[in-house]
């Protein structure tokens, strides 16, 4: 179950960054494993986010614009 404030964009960007970091020959095996574990978690969360999403439609009403305005 994803937390409510799960940020898909942030997560997928981080995942992309981790993939790039693992290309780096300089990082140690320990660091690589830590990055790998984090990446796998992010990838799982991102997939879950996409699969569990249900389209939400709200209607802009006069009332709402007054409330927000």
């Amino acid at each position: 179950m994803l937390s409510k404030d799960f940020d898909f964009e942030k997560s997928i960007k981080e995942l992309e960054k981790i993939a790039a970091s693992l290309e780096n020959e300089q990082i140690t095996l320990d660091e690589s494993i830590a990055l790998f574990e984090k990446g796998v978690k992010l990838s799982k969360d991102c997939s879950e986010y996409l699969e569990s999403a249900k389209q939400k439609i709200i209607t802009l009403t006069e009332k709402e614009s007054e409330d927000n305005g």
Partner: peptide
Amino acid sequence: LKNHIDSITNLLKSKI
């Protein structure tokens, strides 16, 4: 997007 995520995951696996 799912393919993209899968390909990143595979990349992670191949890198490790």
